[in-house]
């Protein structure tokens, strides 16, 4: 383990990997807070699956594996998925959950069709595409880190600048609308930022498990604080922590896909938070209860 930590500073490849995973963790952790508070955690799941056909189409059209091109394709089909979900829910009797399930599974199905089509056409580039399914941290190079970093910085800057607006949108959209905030546009913007977080993450965590990066650190962070800003910071930190630890284990050479390990470490953090969390953890509320009971008993005698 110590060797790994040392390698973090000396090993160029490992440093890129860790950096990439940290960036991804911070962004998805921070944006995931808004998704979770607005009960849209599973929207992230559907949109992450919806990126797969986009990656394939971008590759088919451009013939390159340049990360920027593939991620652009990913963002486009994810946005298409989001539009479809909104259209179906707003105009028909189909409910939100079914709309998510359809987009998730059908887009993923279309993605597998395209993956096999690409493989069948004998194009050597195809080997690089199925890493998007479970993620492969080891393939992250400097160029990827730069792309991820720029996207992440832009997304976080928007969150910082519009923090007040996003807060009121998440807590009470009707009240926000009554004061003249363009709730519809802010909604689109926040969903677009979540798409950015997904796009940053799919290379590393993969499309299937990306939802965990949006949901799990945010739910864990909620156990430690009663302030939105605190939750966003802690969630970003938890996201980075799970990203880096997962990537390091995965890169240590045991031929494991990165996504599952990152998700398992995020789950571990969540479970610890559920028990030990300062604001809502089981442990403290149990202790508080006992103290209150003792105080009540003491008062009555």
């Amino acid at each position: 383990m110590l060797e790994l930590v040392a390698a973090l500073f000396t090993d160029y490849t490992l440093r890129n990997v860790a950096l990439g995973c940290a960036v991804l963790g911070v962004v998805s952790g921070a944006l995931g807070c808004f998704a979770v508070l607005r009960r849209q955690g599973l929207l992230g799941d559907a949109l992450a699956h919806a990126t797969l056909p986009g990656v394939c189409v971008a590759f088919l059209l451009s013939g390159t594996r340049a990360p920027f091109v593939l991620l652009l394709g990913a963002a486009l089909t994810a946005s298409l998925g989001a539009l479809l979900i909104i259209a179906v829910v707003n105009t028909t009797r189909i409910k939100y959950d079914a709309a998510l399930g359809i987009v998730l599974s059908v887009f993923f199905g279309a993605g597998t069709v395209l993956l096999t089509y690409i493989a069948g056409s004998g194009n050597s580039g195809q080997s690089g595409l199925d890493r998007f399914i479970f993620g492969q941290a080891a393939t992250i190079v400097r160029g990827d880190v730069v792309t991820m970093g720029i996207l992440a910085a832009a997304a976080l800057l928007v969150v910082f600048v519009l923090f007040k607006e996003f807060k009121i949108l998440s807590f009470d959209p009707e009240f926000a609308a009554s004061m003249g905030f363009p709730v519809g546009k802010l909604n689109v913007l926040l969903t677009a930022l979540i798409v950015v977080a997904i796009v940053i993450g799919i290379q590393t965590v993969g499309v299937i498990l990306m939802a965990a990066m949006l949901i799990t650190p945010a739910a864990a962070a909620r156990q430690w604080t009663d302030k939105l800003s605190g939750m966003v910071f802690i969630s970003g930190f938890f996201g980075a922590l799970s990203g880096v630890s997962g990537a390091m284990v995965s890169a240590s050479g045991s031929n494991l896909p990165t996504g599952p390990i990152i998700v398992l470490s995020a789950t571990g953090i969540f479970l610890l938070s559920l028990v030990f969390g300062a604001r809502h953890g089981f442990l403290w509320s149990r202790m508080r209860e006992r103290r209150n009971r003792r105080a009540a008993l003491g008062g009555s005698t």
Binding site: R39, A212, G259, P260, L264, T267
Partner: peptide, 15 residues
């Protein structure tokens, strides 16, 4: 909340 519970549980088990 329920949607977060779903997301946390199934991703953990699938992972």
């Amino acid at each position: 909340k329920e949607d977060s519970s779903i997301g946390i549980v199934f991703t953990a088990l699938f992972a």
